[in-house]
Design a protein around this nucleic acid. Structure first.
Lengths: 211, 211
DNA sequence: CGGCTTATTGATCCGACTCAACGTTAGTGG
DNA sequence: CCACTAACGTTGAGTCGGATCAATAAGCCG
């Protein structure tokens, strides 16, 4: 990541709802998020959409386009977001100058595969409550890793986006959030969330405590 | 792939049910399948399993271990399977001798991400019938690409494995196969499958015809 | 041949979806 | 700055797809 940042060519800013790239487009850039947040999604020929990830600063987008030379997913800013772009065409050239760059990129992709495996596990095998509990815990950990409060944060994505990502209906997201709130595990106000009883939330998600 | 094959160190054979590697193990080898088939899976702390892929000759396994130095999934032979192994420790060394090797590996990983995105779409957004129809079509295409019959083939995985992979119950797999059979779209006998009406099957999967 | 795994089919139940109505907030332009 | 509007969020009622539980059949292998 730091390497990628050091060879950045351009910085760009996107507003809420703007596309960074869309599926099928020619692979021109890799994107490193500097600030804000981005959702990535794929869709079926008949128009159904699956959100594949929410991305925060420090994360790199677009590498899955490498194999076929075109993006397989689309990326859209959830709020005002600034990114660094690296021209795909220069990647080979850069890799020759910086031998460890390719290794960095492989690590990123390897990590992406790992993360996708987690999401598949969640989509295939977990109940709606477990999904949402795990989702909240995952957010909490990501914020903690960036030295933000792990118990108080703002969601940049809508209920609909959360539901889509987790493979459940928007209404179910609301209902379960209400249920968690009634159980004293969380408090929500619109997009602001407070995690009150992490322990209990982890029990619902049936996860091991953080490693 | 051809490159990987040219630098292969060891060939190994696994029998049905044997593990190639398991989650958490140290990342020692990359595996290229020469013959047979392999399933990969991940699991939750409480023991639920999600199969993430069925793999056939020509495919490479284990690259997602790169990021953390340990496998994130397990791989198990579905039948007698022969593989080529490359020592992970020698990858750096090899990459220096063969500059395009890393690029090859990135392409493989990039392709893996793409494939995982498809599975997420399937797990999150499709009905059981659509899943199974798409599964059969996908198999058909993979066999066709290897010059086997796209309409007649043997499954190396059980109904339970299929159901797990698709995120549905084993019983539902059976029921829907029966339904497809009654509709004259396929014929099954145990693990042997004949696709009779591909057109109709594609309609059920709501897919575009093959590109 | 007998025990074991895999596949099939039936009956029942429940979690989550859909449809629908309504409340709330943020963003827009006058 | 305020009114208006569109997007977002919440809640309820009713339905259904697919899970689960249970029993039986059909291969498979020693």
């Amino acid at each position: 990541m730091t390497l990628l940042e050091s060879i950045v060519k351009r910085k760009e800013t996107y507003k809420r709802g703007q596309l960074l790239f869309r599926a099928g487009e020619r692979f021109d850039f890799i994107y490193a998020i500097r600030g804000g947040s981005v959702k990535t999604s794929v869709c079926t020929p008949d128009g159904r959409v699956q959100i594949t990830g929410f991305h925060i600063p420090g994360e790199v987008l677009g590498l899955s386009a490498l194999a076929l030379g075109q993006y397989s997913s689309e990326a859209r800013a959830l709020e005002t977001t600034s990114v660094c772009r690296v021209e795909a065409a220069r990647l080979d050239e850069l890799a020759q100058k910086i031998p460890s760059l390719q290794y960095q990129m492989m690590k990123i992709m390897s990590g992406q595969i790992r993360q996708d495996e987690e999401l598949m596990l969640l989509l295939g095998r977990r109940s709606a409550e477990e999904r949402l509990a795990e989702y909240l815990i995952g957010l909490s950990r990501r914020f903690a890793a960036r030295n933000f409060s792990p118990t108080q944060f703002n969601l940049s994505m809508s209920r609909g986006d959360i539901g889509n990502y987790l493979g459940i209906a928007e209404e179910t997201v609301c209902r379960i959030l209400t249920r968690f709130q009634n159980a004293g595990m969380i408090a929500t106000q619109r997009r602001h969330v407070s995690l009150i009883d992490l322990r209990q939330l982890e029990a619902v998600a049936r996860m091991k405590p953080a490693a």
